[in-house]
């Protein structure tokens, strides 16, 4: 695939202040509500099926992007400068949305992304959002008490590390660039990519440690 700065797809009207569903998404939602009202399907059962395939949805390019940034300082610089453009240069990534911003975790700062909507969540890179990500309590609590939310996920960030919460907008989507785990010197990009979890790219988790099983 060639390089695209802006890859226009099926979102027709991109206003800043309201939500947007594609024509196809509208039709799926219409079917789902009618069938639910008539008792043919149960939303919870549908969610369970979709969740069972969460690792099978979308190209999951995020892990490759992170692994490349860990291995190639020039790519990392480019990624932090303009993530949409940098990801486009990888060639195999087709639709990352127009305004992707990569934010880097350091010993001084931990980044975490919140939003309740799929439309601002870069599922092309990360796969499906987790269910809790869409729940409004997560969003509001994450803004007020990020450390508490992280603790709920079993993630403890050192006290001296600042936690920065990024709220996606309709225009901008975020990808957290986690810190490269220690003990991975000399690893190939492919090996590194296997350590990158979805949650580490949202900031609600860390990459796997070398030797840990998934």
């Amino acid at each position: 695939m060639s390089e695209h700065d802006h890859d226009h797809h099926d979102h027709h009207h991109h206003d800043h202040d309201h939500s947007d569903l594609s024509e196809t998404e509208l039709r799926v939602r219409a079917l789902e509500s009618i069938l639910t009202e008539k008792g043919y399907i149960e939303p919870a059962a549908l969610d369970a099926i979709v969740q069972a395939y969460e690792t099978k949805i979308g190209p999951h390019n995020g892990a490759q992007v992170v692994a490349r940034a860990w291995s190639d300082p020039a790519f990392k610089t480019a990624l932090l400068e303009d993530a949409t453009k940098a990801v486009g240069t990888l060639g195999h990534v087709s639709r990352v949305g127009d305004h992707l911003v990569a934010v880097e975790n350091t010993p001084h700062r931990h980044n975490m992304v919140v939003c309740t909507l799929c439309s601002c969540y870069p599922w092309e890179m990360l796969g499906l959002p987790p269910v809790w990500y869409k729940a409004s309590p997560y969003r509001s609590r994450a803004v007020k008490d990020p450390r508490g939310v992280l603790a709920d996920f079993g993630v403890s960030v050192p006290k001296e590390t600042e936690i920065r919460v990024w709220d996606s907008t309709a225009e901008t989507r975020f990808l957290v660039l986690p810190m490269r785990p220690e003990g991975t010197e000399g690893w190939s990009e492919q090996q590194l990519a296997e350590l990158v979890t979805r949650d580490s790219m949202i900031g609600t988790g860390f990459p796997r440690k070398p030797g840990a099983r998934s």
Binding site: L35, I49, V50, Y53
Partner: peptide, 28 residues
């Protein structure tokens, strides 16, 4: 599909798949 089963290009595809699966189970 891949070696393990169905794969989807977007979340809505999985939703459409899940709807068909549910309707089939209902015997429609």
């Amino acid at each position: 599909r891949d070696d393990e089963g169905p794969v989807f290009r977007a979340p809505w595809e999985a939703q459409a798949f899940a709807i068909a699966l549910s309707l089939h189970e209902r015997g429609l």
